[in-house]
Design a protein around this nucleic acid. Structure first.
Lengths: 142, 142
DNA sequence: ATTGATGTAACAGATATTGTTACAATAGGA
DNA sequence: TCCTATTGTAACAATATCTGTTACATCAAT
């Protein structure tokens, strides 16, 4: 599976925000600062934080003194929410081309796989839900 | 996540082999026949069945009258084994470039994520292990 | 008005995926 | 021994995705 690192970058950004934000007046952090910790380009960070914003996990201030803020306590952000925010597509694809409808397997397998895949994905999310950004941060700085 | 359809193709091929093989003398099926049901090119099938062969789930006969055979009962092949056979890469990537080692989060987060990701992947596999090719086939032809 | 940040479009390079052609290797059977 | 049907695999094209990058409009506090 050609994977991607958005989940990692999102968790890293949130963990760093959780660490720094309380120590800072106003608490805003810029995409530039976050990019410095993740070691990537600020636009990459803005793209990913934009997805987290749509999911309600962070908030962006604009204008002078702008930046990003967590909207919840780090302990109230779990990895399933982060995963849902940055990962839109289903984990497994079905057939690239529709299977042969003249074959009993080709005709019947897609709904079976769809159900099965969504159960597997639910199991993955349930596991991810057991860890929060606060948990990740605590382990990371330990 | 840029996904792929190898898992789907593998399950489809195995389910069809499980359906047809018992009805056939010798039981071998060619990549051409399987490609006809999946609706793809025989080379795509041979590539994927090759991975299943390396994992010991199927066997290939060569020469005249060659083709593919299941090496186990369909009830003894579970989806976690199929997933393991066709999906080599980890589910989630870490950082594209090493994070900033001067930052406490950048320095400490990778081992935490590695552990966490491998736990999530184990949860996924555990769920997949609960379904066999026989289960898929039964639901598919129902 | 100035300033410093977000939001987003556009593009390049790298890589993955699927489909395809081509052909060597294999082994059964005439 | 030769013919034949199939696997095994390399090579390539088309497409898509991912990451990084430049560029610039938008925004709001000072």
């Amino acid at each position: 599976m050609s994977s991607n690192s958005r989940f990692t970058v999102a968790i890293h950004a949130l963990a760093w925000m959780a660490l720094v934000q309380p120590k800072r007046d106003g608490g805003v952090m810029t995409s530039d600062e976050i990019a410095g910790s993740v070691n990537t380009n600020p636009v990459v960070i803005r793209r990913i934080l934009g997805q987290l914003r749509e999911a309600g996990l962070v908030e962006a201030r604009r204008g002078q003194g702008a930046g990003w803020l967590l909207t919840r306590e780090p302990a109230a952000i779990n990895l399933a929410a982060v995963y849902g925010a940055v990962e839109g597509d289903p984990l497994f694809d079905l057939h690239p081309a529709p299977p042969n409808q003249a074959c009993p397997v080709g005709r019947g397998i897609q709904p079976v796989l769809r159900r099965r895949y969504s159960r597997a994905e639910a199991a993955l999310r349930a596991d991810l839900a057991g860890t929060s950004i606060a948990d990740v941060l605590k382990e990371t700085v330990a």
